[in-house]
């Protein structure tokens, strides 16, 4: 086994208040290792609004601007404009939003920023529900999920919004999915995004949430890997909205990913088959857009 190559630099401070095993914390840790110290982070309401620390503490070694829930794209645009005017154009402005702040309440602001091709890096760390408020469904919550607002037999029967396609439809310069289980791939994408100066860039990072998903905290990374290996969350890149590169190809049935999770425990074998069909359909669509064969997900580790 070749050991994973991850930069030594650390911009996440100890003593933050993220849940034990928080995938979003790992995501931020990798992101900043990739981006380095010349970065400003804009955080709208989300788990990270808490994890970043309560006054007078901060858990990051880079400047943070907390922002209103719906405003990550716009606030980051303003920061960008100001830094450019101040003669600091090289500083990376990263909006760091959860799925609620990206797929739902912040979608308009994100869309505006991307349409304007703002020189910002927008990152959605996706834990597939409103976790900070107690696990309410978002439009990122996948089919089949139980949340506190899709409880018991009212489990969510609509599909997860495809945010990547939304962004691709904007013809965004660069959009990519990334997973905390594949740190090298993730860091490569963050650096690629960082270096694609002058354009809007979007990274969709899968960040497992043991608290909200009903899984033991030690399975955070394992689940993120299973999401990739089952094609539930394929790793891929889109340039200019049209040029697709698949980084991985799954090799496991969705059951392997669903079965360890409390939020899917109620699903019948037929429900799981339905989900498999949806995942297969999405995968076929994605395959059709990409050129060249993807690598096996296992080899990416």
């Amino acid at each position: 086994m070749r050991p994973l190559q991850v930069p030594e630099e650390e911009y996440l401070r100890r003593g933050h208040v993220g849940c034990a095993g928080c995938g979003a914390v790992i995501a931020m840790r990798f992101a900043l290792k990739a981006l380095g110290p010349d970065t400003v982070v804009v955080i709208p309401a989300c788990c990270w609004g808490v994890i970043a620390g309560a006054y007078p503490q901060s858990s990051l070694d880079v400047p943070i601007l907390h922002a209103a829930f719906a405003t990550a794209g716009a606030t980051a645009s303003g920061v960008r404009a100001a830094l450019d005017m101040r003669g600091e154009p090289d500083t990376t402005v990263m909006a760091w939003a959860g799925d609620g702040g990206t797929f739902d309440i912040g979608l308009q602001s994100l869309s505006g920023a991307v349409e304007r091709d703002e020189d910002i890096l927008y990152v959605c760390y996706d834990n597939e529900a409103y976790m900070n408020t107690g696990v309410q469904r978002s439009s990122s919550t996948p089919y089949g999920t139980r949340t506190t607002t899709t409880p018991r037999e009212g489990w969510k029967r609509t599909r997860k919004k495809n945010i990547m396609e939304t962004l691709a439809a904007h013809r965004i310069a660069y959009a990519a999915t990334a997973s905390i289980a594949y740190p090298e791939d993730m860091i490569r994408k963050f650096r690629k995004a960082r270096d694609l100066k002058g354009h809007a860039r979007f990274l969709h990072v899968f960040a497992s949430c043991p608290t909200g998903w009903g899984v033991p905290s030690e399975l955070t990374v394992k689940l993120a890997r299973l999401a990739v290996r089952t094609n539930v969350f394929p790793l891929y890149e889109v340039e200019n909205g049209v040029s697709y590169t698949l980084n991985t190809e799954g090799d496991l049935p969705v059951r392997a990913y669903l079965s360890p999770q409390g939020r899917f425990r109620h699903l019948s074998p037929e429900d799981i088959q339905d989900i498999q069909r949806m995942v297969d359909e999405d995968w076929r669509l994605l395959r059709a857009k990409a050129q060249g064969p993807p690598q096996r997900a296992r080899l990416m580790a």
Binding site: V40, V42, L65, A67, A68, A70, T71, G73, A74, T75, A76, S77, G78, V79, R80, A81, A82, L83, D84, M85, R86, Q108, S109, S111, G112, E115, R116
Partner: peptide, 28 residues
């Protein structure tokens, strides 16, 4: 004017953008 004009998609975003800009240290 030596300024950036950000044509946002809503007033909510307009105010958010000038908040971001002002917090980054410019007159907005």
């Amino acid at each position: 004017m030596d300024a950036r004009f950000i044509c946002v998609e809503s007033e909510h975003s307009a105010m958010a953008a000038v908040i971001g800009a002002s917090n980054a240290g410019v007159r907005a």
